[in-house]
Design a protein around this nucleic acid. Sequence first.
DNA 1: AATCAATAGTTCGATATCTAACTATAATAG
DNA 2: CTATTATAGTTAGATATCGAACTATTGATT
Lengths: 150, 150
Amino acid sequence: MDKATRRQRLFELFNEIGIIQQLAGTAFNNRLPDGLHVSHFTVINHLCRLGDGRTPLQLSRAFQVTKATMTNTLGKLEARGFIRVRNNPADGRSKLVFLTDKGRSFRTTAIATLYPLLDKLDQDLGTEALSRILPQLRQLRTYLDENRDG
Amino acid sequence: MDKATRRQRLFELFNEIGIIQQLAGTAFNNRLPDGLHVSHFTVINHLCRLGDGRTPLQLSRAFQVTKATMTNTLGKLEARGFIRVRNNPADGRSKLVFLTDKGRSFRTTAIATLYPLLDKLDQDLGTEALSRILPQLRQLRTYLDENRDG
DNA sequence: AATCAATAGTTCGATATCTAACTATAATAG
DNA sequence: CTATTATAGTTAGATATCGAACTATTGATT
């Protein structure tokens, strides 16, 4: 495989990833209740699965978005009553994000609307085959994260 | 692997893909000359590699963006003098997109700034290993494309 | 202790993208 | 032919995201 081919392969890789993200994002967004976005769900889901009481910065790092983006997302979630944001007693600059009951029940509803898509995908393509590429994706993600300014 | 695990795996898959897209997109965008975006480059690159004289709709399908998005992208490219858009003599509703010399030379410049990133990635992680996941990504992309309304 | 640098979060302006509604042309059906 | 339906592209409005500049607090250096 010569240099030009390798470059083209890698570029194609990012191209495919970009398209998948767009298609999957749209599919998810269309299923979620009015005005809610995958990014909102993933934050709620994260807090639910791994525990709340995290700072906005921790969340923005977990999803690799800017602090500004997370401020916006959390604002929407708070306006909906899905989270409550408190000052961090341990650090005056910082805040802590907590889930409300409403937030948890939103997750339940959202899951009920999103999981049929995943189940169908599992049935049609097979999770085993798909999740075989997870290690490479994680490796790529970690690499990109570590070489952000390079 | 039980149902809950499979769902979580698939969700994680989309999550990784979303993050990679964000990191790679940002890395590319930061390298491109003022105000230009990966989406602009990919259109130019596509026209250069596979031939110009395509319609906006064909382009929007190739990149899985809406017609409205492609209108916007092509407007920016035309304002920069990278493309010229003509009426399609074969269909009065349609148009055809052609590259200008300026567009081709932009591609050359852009490639020179983007490819070092890909070369470093090739060197550090290896294109062989990475491109091994391309078939699964293509399969997933095709599936999502075909099941867009499902 | 005082100053300077680093960190957390917000605000502001820009932009890429989406959906929905619209215009114009083409294709099909009666 | 005419009328309806489908297709190509644009426009308008909304929003998620980004980068840069700003405020407030913490940490480090002298």
